[in-house]
Design a protein around this nucleic acid. Sequence first.
DNA 1: TATGAATGAGATTTCATTCAT
DNA 2: CATGAATGAAATCTCATTCAT
Lengths: 202, 202, 202, 202
Amino acid sequence: MNTREKILEVSLDMFAKQGYTAVSIRDICKQVGIKESSVYYHFKNKQSIFDEFINKFTEIANGMIIQLENGLTDGEGSFSDSFNSVANVFFEKYLMDDFCNKVMRVMLIEQLGNDDIRKLYREWLLDKPLQIQIKIFQTLMNFGIIPNCDSQYLAIKYYSPIYFYANKWLFSEELTEENKTAFREAAYKHIQMFFMEMGGNR
Amino acid sequence: MNTREKILEVSLDMFAKQGYTAVSIRDICKQVGIKESSVYYHFKNKQSIFDEFINKFTEIANGMIIQLENGLTDGEGSFSDSFNSVANVFFEKYLMDDFCNKVMRVMLIEQLGNDDIRKLYREWLLDKPLQIQIKIFQTLMNFGIIPNCDSQYLAIKYYSPIYFYANKWLFSEELTEENKTAFREAAYKHIQMFFMEMGGNR
Amino acid sequence: MNTREKILEVSLDMFAKQGYTAVSIRDICKQVGIKESSVYYHFKNKQSIFDEFINKFTEIANGMIIQLENGLTDGEGSFSDSFNSVANVFFEKYLMDDFCNKVMRVMLIEQLGNDDIRKLYREWLLDKPLQIQIKIFQTLMNFGIIPNCDSQYLAIKYYSPIYFYANKWLFSEELTEENKTAFREAAYKHIQMFFMEMGGNR
Amino acid sequence: MNTREKILEVSLDMFAKQGYTAVSIRDICKQVGIKESSVYYHFKNKQSIFDEFINKFTEIANGMIIQLENGLTDGEGSFSDSFNSVANVFFEKYLMDDFCNKVMRVMLIEQLGNDDIRKLYREWLLDKPLQIQIKIFQTLMNFGIIPNCDSQYLAIKYYSPIYFYANKWLFSEELTEENKTAFREAAYKHIQMFFMEMGGNR
DNA sequence: TATGAATGAGATTTCATTCAT
DNA sequence: CATGAATGAAATCTCATTCAT
């Protein structure tokens, strides 16, 4: 790994733990093992390190959305299979992905003082995940797999416990394997129950 | 309002908007209209201003818990009445209370870099609200008002959408009347639906 | 004891331990139990507290000189008696006197940065004690009690070990009874030996 | 001379004149001709500048001790020659050495408020010099050059006038050539007399 | 690529002092 | 007599950044 990448890795790590403002160039450089001035060869300034994360995150997140939406139209496989596969991607490649998780932590911290970040946080942790679920439920209704009803309401019912568990296990404490496991257990149990109830209604 | 109170008011306001570290004593003093050194007549240091908020918040929050638990044992009034009154207190006197809301915003920002704050955040926004709901559902089961089932599961189903809406409308953007209204509408609609489903299950 | 005296007592105590500049009005007031502003009713400023000590010390020290010189001309009593009585006064009423000792400690600390204090220190710990001894030895020579010789040389021989022991036991560590005892033992032993040698020369 | 060395030089100079606390980083920088923040490129903080002096001094002083002790066992040369050479090293390379003298001045000022410095002062101006002299006299006794007697007593007799003169001429006023000369004259005269008396006793 | 050196701006805090009450 | 309140000045230190090498 070259210096530029080391800087990025260390920065993200520290930003995710202490927040953007609380981490100084000094802190980063001490960890990387270079002098402060060297950072400015690789990056215009501190902000641009941060921007890089946001850009990469936005790309990944957009990619995931597209991947999930494509998966939907496939329509292949069973009802619960495709649902679980969506959840799996969303959990493993997004909420619990090392990079994404860290960026979301930074967004969580910085959102209040920074309008741009606030918009991103709202978009990527509140609105977009909900929209996906809404689309999923609408697709299921269109295919007649589930009875017609308020898809927005369904999506909230489905997503909000996941959001709650994510805040409890994935964004509050360190992202250890134990916390991941705790999250998975809670989230999958919720999904199971959710389907049972949906099935029961049918 | 005397200087001490002005400092507190301005500080909380700025902390809630930008976070503890991002706000300097200078910033606060400029707003209050005093010199920096004057702050140290009223407070030992910057941290102690912050501590005052945390202490007052903890007191208020504990008071609310007690109030809610006492309300439960009363058992007076109809099922949905007492439920709505709990929600009302929790929403208006806690989530949307000017002081509490601001302190919770600061906790939200500072939680990642600060272990003590993290604990408080988890306690007062995740765990304690859930515990109350669990107790409420257990009481309802004991009285035979709702059928016996997993109270923890019920509580998550009930509380997580509220938590989701709170993050969306109460802790992300400014706490305007519009946002309060949006939150109330979404939350009360959720509660209504929640009861309908519970009733339908009976 | 009234407030003014309490301020003086506490100030001297702290000055002697930490030096004039290192002690703040705050420190003093905390100890006395008054507010900072109250000091300025009793004293013009911080410096004037210090001046008071210097003035009082100079008075006491001058008084001691006069007392010692008067004692000399008395010529009453035996040779070693009068010598021991001089030493006794110099030790107990000066070097080890609570007030004088503390003032000399402050002078010791402040001498380098302050010309006036340096002069006082030199005068009262180096020059004046030596002058007294010179006078004493000259008197003894005049009375034929000791043989004529360089009184200055004798005085140095006599006083410098006392000065050394004083720096070791009385001005370096706290002025405890143990340190006083250690000083007395060393100093009186020195005086005894000094006379033995003088006698042996006769 | 580079900036780091300039800072050290100016700092020691000012510390020796006014004491550690009385000298501010501002004062130092004004003299050196740099901005305050620049100091922190070269030193961790103000204390670490001071520490550097103490460490270097301790090294030099220890070196001198070893040098003197080695000189003793040589036993070469005449009695008074070796004695004068010890005195010469102790005077010129220690008490009157520009660097050492300044550090000892700082220790003198700071000793009362600072336990560590007090220990150093006692060690390097009171105890260690005495120990050396004790060893020297013991060696002389062992070789039968001087008659057996209380070496501690001899050492005090020998060293305390030197200590007295040092305080008078080397640590109180500025270390000018005049003061050095005054010290040398007084000290060497004392040494001469000391030997004469020792010889007379034989 | 990397660093040594420097810096302006600003952060928190301390201190002696003033003044109206 | 004493204090509440305030302040100008200064102290130590941090930070992001620049620039020549």
